[in-house]
Simulated assay, not measured.
Amino acid sequence: MLFLLMGALTLCGMYVSLTNGMFDISAANVVRTLLRIHPNADHDLVIFDFRLPRIVLGALVGFGLGVAGAVLQGITRNPLADPGILGIHAAAGTFVVVFMFFTAGTMKAPDWLSVLTMPVFGFLGGLAAIVLLFLFARRAGEFDPQQLILVGIALASGFGAITLYVSLKMDPQNFEMAAVWLAGSVYNANWRQILSALPWLVVLIPVIWRRAAVLDLLQLHEVSVKGVGVASGRERQVLLLCCVGLV
């Protein structure tokens, strides 16, 4: 029932987003536009260039972050865990802001490459956070879920401070661009950005799906996890790397 209720609310939100705004479009015209029945140039522009990309990108982002959050809750055995608590968000943001600081307005690249550049730098930042987690969140060579959270909070604070320092060194135009990116916005969403997000989801979600049973087993005591034949350290590393890609 909860799944059906949330699905219905999602569809209602999509309906309102497609039909309402500065340029209202009736539900019938939305259906005709989507099915290409007597297409109208104005309707095509509003739906396919502005509203639909925002809806699709927002859904993909929410889906990816939701899966990543669920995985991190399983790894840490903490229902409050999320990519922000473990410092992955902050590290990804730091690397992207540093990239903007050194290249904004000067990097020459094709459109498809420029769209992929920021996600790749975000991924590298997430990897940096994971490496530091691997170094500092171990006890006697094994991951300690509680220590993982404490180290993650410290990393989030450290990377956040670096991001703030670099942002304040930017010129006003680049600072505004960085602030919008860090805050998160789908205002200028387009199909290129959607295509740049899809490979991460298409590749990593099945990897996580195949390890759903392992996530359940990781809720047991560490001795019990090893007793049922799960290589807990390796599985946590794989799952953490998948979370970095999704974030």
Rank of each mutant, 00 (worst) to 15 (best):
N20H: 12
R139H: 11
F101C: 09
A213R: 15
F23Q: 09
C242L: 09
L182G: 02
F136D: 05
L204W: 05
V151R: 08
V131N: 07
R36K: 12
A81M: 04
L217K: 11
D49L: 04
G125D: 01
N174I: 08
A212S: 15
Q73I: 03
V203A: 14
L239F: 09
A104P: 04
A92T: 10
A178H: 10
Y187L: 11
A178K: 12
L45E: 09
R138A: 04
E222L: 02
G229Y: 06
L218W: 06
P39R: 05
L5N: 08
R32E: 12
A154M: 13
G84L: 03
V238C: 09
A28Y: 09
R236G: 01
A137V: 03
G233P: 03
P110M: 08
I130Y: 12
A28Q: 13
V207N: 01
L18K: 11
P79F: 07
E142C: 05
I162V: 15
L182R: 15
P145W: 07
I47Y: 00
L246R: 04
F101D: 06
G69I: 00
I37S: 07
V97C: 00
G84F: 06
A109N: 06
G184V: 05
L182I: 14
G69N: 05
P79A: 11
N29Y: 05
P83G: 08
L11Q: 06
P53T: 02
A178F: 03
P83W: 04
A92L: 03
T117G: 04
A231Y: 07
Q73N: 12
M100G: 00
V96T: 12
R138V: 01
Q219F: 00
T163A: 01
V151W: 04
V31I: 15
G93Y: 00
L155E: 00
S196R: 05
V120W: 03
V244T: 15
I25P: 05
A91Q: 02
V186Q: 08
